[in-house]
Design a protein around this nucleic acid. Structure first.
Lengths: 188, 188
DNA sequence: GCGTTCATGTAACTGGTTACATGATTTG
DNA sequence: CAAATCATGTAACCAGTTACATGAACGC
């Protein structure tokens, strides 16, 4: 089984969910397309890790809600003890930053100034999501054994990583303005 | 053309390189397997963005060195002005952190304590690579228009992102020890 | 001689994306 | 009545991984 299968199974274990629900849970932390989720759910059901039933909704289209089986609980329990696969980052900006020397100074500065704008927007989205989360919990986080706790800590991580990235971009812009570069200590 | 093709082409533009060289340049910032690089290089040559020649080496096996063509320079120049594809992060730890509530407190703490160990090792590797870079440049970074500048700024980024991640893990461990959680401001 | 680093390639597979396809319900 | 959101699926394609395959040069 692959990582996304475990992630989906874990969410269903936390509470029974539809493919659409799962997509929305995962989106903030893991890019995922609905086509992949529905395909994976079909496989999980085929392997008897989950069962499904149609739940009729009055105000919205009906949904197919998946529930974990005993067999599914066993594999998810085991997964937590397995070592983590190395993280995979694929970021076009990182490649451009690495190759920044191919550009002239004005182009280079533009690359980082645009990045700052992008990151500031990302930070705003994070803060908005934190506000939504607070509203979802009526302002109180009582227990860590909820999916809300996971959402909360990961949103905080994302937010502060973004802040560091912004400061890093500003540091690079300062470097680009210097006549004589050197191996400067990163200022924080 | 995909992102990795542009990255490889950009490196060859900076200076003519073999597949093996390219792999080592990319490794610290972008996980990539040699099989993908050699396949991509063959495609870039087929499309006449690069040319190749065998360079004989006395002390090592011969290598196939690729050089960019005029046609290749045009596409790489254009690439810099294109908007960046959204970054893609796939991290098994993030999924486990999201689902941390499925575990008991002891297991949860273990997850983050192990993560800290992993991140501390990552920070050490970053610092080692920074030392190697300094040695490669004889202690002086004169110009931003070198691949060394790109290596330098990205290693600094990675290092400081890692430091923030460590502090974040410690914050989560503190949270897990609290009896009454709440939406605490992240302490920095 | 054995392990490591340097060096290059191909073939099969699979995870993930893009595009195709449909339809209910709500809000403006 | 149009757009947005909710909701679910399939098929074709391709990027990237894993495994297979080879071999030179060097240090111990």
């Amino acid at each position: 089984m692959n990582t996304i299968s475990y992630g989906i199974l874990g969410i269903i274990n936390a509470h029974s969910s539809s493919g659409y629900d799962i997509m929305n849970y995962l989106k903030p932390f893991r890019e995922v397309k609905h086509s992949q989720i529905y395909r994976t759910l079909a496989n999980l059901e085929k392997d008897e890790f989950v069962t499904s039933e149609i739940v009729e909704q009055a105000d919205k289209p009906n949904k197919k809600v998946y529930t974990i089986t005993e067999k599914g609980k066993e594999v998810i329990e085991e997964w937590f003890y397995q070592p983590n696969a190395p993280a995979l980052l694929r970021d076009e900006f990182v490649l451009k930053a690495f190759l920044v020397g191919l550009q002239d100074k004005a182009e280079a500065k533009q690359l980082f100034n645009e990045r700052i704008k992008y990151l500031e927007k990302k930070a705003r989205v994070c803060n908005e999501r934190l506000d939504i989360l607070k509203a979802d919990c009526d302002g109180v986080l009582t227990d860590f054994q909820t999916l809300e706790f996971g959402r909360y800590i990961l949103l905080q991580q994302l937010l502060h990583q973004t802040y560091v990235d912004i400061r890093w971009c500003q540091w690079v812009l300062d470097l680009l303005d210097k006549d004589k570069l050197n191996f400067l200590t990163y200022p924080f």
